[in-house]
Design a protein around this nucleic acid. Structure first.
Lengths: 220, 220
DNA sequence: ACCTGAACACCGTTCAAGT
DNA sequence: ACCTGAACACCGTTCAAGT
């Protein structure tokens, strides 16, 4: 049968085909692949994921992913994008829970950043570990990233208006805060602080300590 | 010829063989492989390095590396080890250049950490990006890492004795400082701050800003 | 302590052809 | 919008055998 007629046929009655024969597994294979990949991440690692493995986990042939992603790195980018959105959402929730208290917002958001990151270290390595080519990062990806950063800057500005934070450029302060929690999270995730932070509680404790140091400085 | 006799022969007159026939390329293939790998790092990326590629660049067969490394990840670990030593050495030099001034030592060491890291972002991703299994990290590796951290703690303690830094546990302060510079470096290396830090001078500038914020805090 | 060469299972990617 | 199946070049790893 010609491809054209076939396409008309299946796009017209997707559900029917899904019920009658077991050929088309997913309404949204794209999401299913991303989900399967996230499930495989802990076992394979960010740099050990294989397209064929992901396809098999999603129950499709190893060529099927190419219908939704240009190549493997496009799939990886989509996974990282999902991770970034989840991180962003979680922090937004935490921030909303401490309304009108910029100082607490900052500390709690930082703590959430570290805690959530350490729940998915492989996701963090995918998002921040240089697996993805910075030049190839999708526009969507950058938007999510910039939106998160803008939220952080907004907290700083609110704190400055309330007379809590000093009057330096808010972007500078935001980068300082982000660098700190990001560095702590990455160091623990990569196993470089195993002596002092193996358990989640220890990581949480450390994130509060560095949060305090950020606020008050380390000078006497 | 039997392997035993052959081994006796070549171990007894390595240089002769090297001159007479072009078969044994390296006195120290292990180092040559690491060096070749470091050279390939910028082109291949931390997770794109292939053993065969490295062997070819070193001018040996693709099975030769197995004489010196158990497997690919052992080679990667050795590369990371080299990177860690270089980073450690560079910081030791900077610290030595500002003797008896713990505050400046801290700021300059941080700046050097960021600057040097950004000169080899792929090396940083290999060292800190989760490419290596934390459990597999060699003892040597951990020793270098711990030695560096001990040096940082020592600076903090000196500053506390001099009455410059506050009297918190020096390990807490050390982790705070390390997290900050590490986070900044990793964020820039992964391309997440391209708006504010593409040039090395901007990175250097940022590292000084966060250093200042670390010292004085962000509260008013 | 290296070499060649073959072999194995796996990988990303690209086809042609089918439903 | 999926499928199978074959193909390609590449990969990590393991051999056997040679120098």
């Amino acid at each position: 049968m010609s491809t054209l007629i076939w396409n008309l046929l299946i796009t017209g009655s997707n559900e029917l085909i899904n019920r009658e024969q077991n050929t088309y597994h997913h309404k949204d294979l794209r999401s299913a692949l991303i989900e399967a990949a996230i499930g495989l991440l802990p076992a394979s690692g960010a740099s050990g994921l294989s397209l064929r493995e992901v396809a098999k986990a999603a129950g499709v042939s190893h060529t099927a992913p190419y219908r939704h992603f240009k190549d493997k790195s496009a799939l990886l980018a989509a996974i990282a994008q999902t991770g970034f959105e989840r991180l962003s959402d979680a922090i937004t929730t935490v921030v909303a829970a401490h309304d009108n208290d910029p100082q607490q917002q900052l500390v709690e958001a930082g703590s959430a950043y570290v805690t959530l990151g350490l729940q998915n270290p492989d996701m963090m390595h995918l998002m921040f570990g240089g697996v993805l080519d910075p030049d190839t990062l999708s526009e969507e990806f950058c938007n999510t990233s910039m939106k998160s950063f803008a939220g952080l800057v907004h907290i700083i500005e609110a704190g400055q208006k309330a007379g809590i934070f000093k009057a330096d450029p808010p972007e500078s302060i935001a980068i300082t805060a982000w660098s700190m929690v990001h560095g702590l999270m990455m160091l623990i995730a990569a196993g470089h602080l195993r002596d002092m932070a193996t358990l989640p509680e220890q990581a949480e404790q450390l994130s509060r300590i560095i949060g305090h140091n950020l606020l008050t400085g380390i000078l006497k």
